[in-house]
């Protein structure tokens, strides 16, 4: 196999890593700042994908579908936080696991009720359906490059908000010392609502832009949840930087695992996690 083959795998791995980052960043923030384990986080990825599928079907344009789906997803995050997650702040992790697991069941059931058990696909928009020629026989789809590009833009935006804005300061402060943040007059519950809703928005957005390259099927959120938990643990709970590095490591190694050692593909990711945790039991980076 030649260089361009590896290049394609690497590009796929990076693109997958970017999507994982969008999902894992919300998960790690919610865990790090709010101390809530949200097992339903993967469901929002699924919901995003189905929203994109549904709205694209109605309006005939993926872009329009996504533009409309984002506010719906954030609003859903807001409602879920107010009606369910807000009860968990003073509870232990067991309550959180039970309640957010119940949310998975509810979302999965709603998905089946609305869209059935068949798997679905979303077409790649015509403007991005082309390919780039790498060598005489190898091409790379433009849409995948587009996905990576959009994720970079969002990643930079997120980094800017967290590092440079007052909201970002309070998010970082809340992650390191919740009581002091409150004692300085910050409304920590409102901060939690914002962080949770934005996290849901990011996960759902990942599902939306992944819809044309990933098929939609019942329970598709479970797989991404587990991989995202691995990413969060590797990166260090609460660390955005860690979520990024962890997502890249897992994204690239899982794609290479699938092509180079197909028989062992499913354990590559966990072997990676075990290795990193032996080296750094707290994960690669510290919180926020």
């Amino acid at each position: 196999m030649e260089f361009s083959f590896y290049l394609i795998q690497l590009l796929n791995g990076i693109q997958y890593g970017f999507l994982l980052f969008l999902v894992a960043s919300g998960l790690t923030l919610v865990f790090g700042i709010m101390d809530v384990i949200n097992l339903a986080h993967g469901s929002f990825y699924m919901i995003g994908a189905y929203l994109a599928f549904w709205l694209t079907g109605i309006f005939g344009s993926l872009f329009l579908g996504i533009v409309l789906a984002i506010p719906l997803a954030v609003a859903l995050g807001f409602v879920v936080e107010r009606l369910a997650i807000a009860y968990l702040y003073k509870k232990g992790h067991l309550h959180q696991v039970l309640l957010t697991y119940a949310l998975i069941l509810i979302f999965d059931e709603a998905q089946r009720f609305l869209w059935g058990n068949d798997s679905h696909g979303v077409d790649i928009p015509a403007a991005l359906s082309g390919s780039i020629t790498l060598t005489d026989i190898q091409v790379y789809p433009v849409y995948r490059l587009f996905v990576s590009f959009v994720c970079i833009v969002i990643g930079v935006g997120m980094f800017y908000v967290i590092q440079k804005t007052k909201l970002g300061m309070t998010i970082r402060a809340g992650a390191s010392n919740r009581q002091m943040t409150q004692a300085l007059g910050i409304n920590i519950e409102r901060l939690f609502t914002i962080v949770f809703s934005l996290g849901v928005g990011l996960a759902a957005f990942a599902g939306m832009i992944a819809a044309p390259i990933d098929s939609l099927y019942p329970g598709m959120g479970d797989n991404i949840l587990i991989i995202s938990l691995v990413v969060v643990v590797i990166g260090g709970i609460g660390s955005i930087k860690g979520a990024f590095v962890g997502a890249m490591i897992i994204g690239v190694s899982s794609i290479f695992g699938k092509t180079l050692f197909p028989s062992m593909a499913s354990i590559v990711v966990y072997a990676m996690m075990a290795g990193i945790l032996i080296w750094k039991p707290q994960g690669l980076f510290k919180s926020a």
Binding site: R172, A173, S176, M180, A183, K286, S287, A288
Partner: peptide, 8 residues
């Protein structure tokens, strides 16, 4: 304990 945020 002063409550300085170490990461700010």
């Amino acid at each position: 304990d002063r409550g300085i945020f170490p990461n700010l």
